[in-house]
């Protein structure tokens, strides 16, 4: 069930401007705060990937690719030019192939 929760976090941050801002300003603190309000629990590696904004790892763990890209752009493009971000995302995704994103 933790994969569902990882996707729920990505979805939540992606769709809410306030959550997006708070997560970007302190990812680790925001993940901890958010998870406390949830009944389900993240797996340790999912939590770590979210705290590190590690999109390559999230992709490998089966985050939904459609939402993951949108989320990745939202939380990184203020620091990394989009073209470079697209390139790096695709390289990291290529290493993982096509993980199962069914929840």
């Amino acid at each position: 069930m933790s994969k569902y929760l990882m996707n729920k976090f990505i979805h939540h941050v992606n769709m809410n401007e306030a959550a997006e801002k708070e997560y970007k300003s302190n990812p680790h603190a925001y993940v901890q705060k958010w998870e406390k309000g949830e009944k389900l629990k993240l797996a340790a590696e999912e939590r770590e990937a979210l705290c590190k904004r590690d999109y390559g790892k999230l992709y490998a763990l089966g985050a939904h690719p459609f939402t993951l890209w949108s989320f990745t752009e939202a939380i990184w493009v203020h620091e990394v030019p989009r073209e470079q971000l697209v390139k790096d995302y695709k390289e990291k995704a290529a290493k993982a192939g096509y993980p199962d994103f069914k929840t």
């Binding site: 992709y59 690719p65 995302y89």
Partner: peptide, 8 residues
């Protein structure tokens, strides 16, 4: 493809 190795 969206959000995979061959997007865009």
């Amino acid at each position: 493809e969206v959000g995979g190795p061959r997007q865009f």
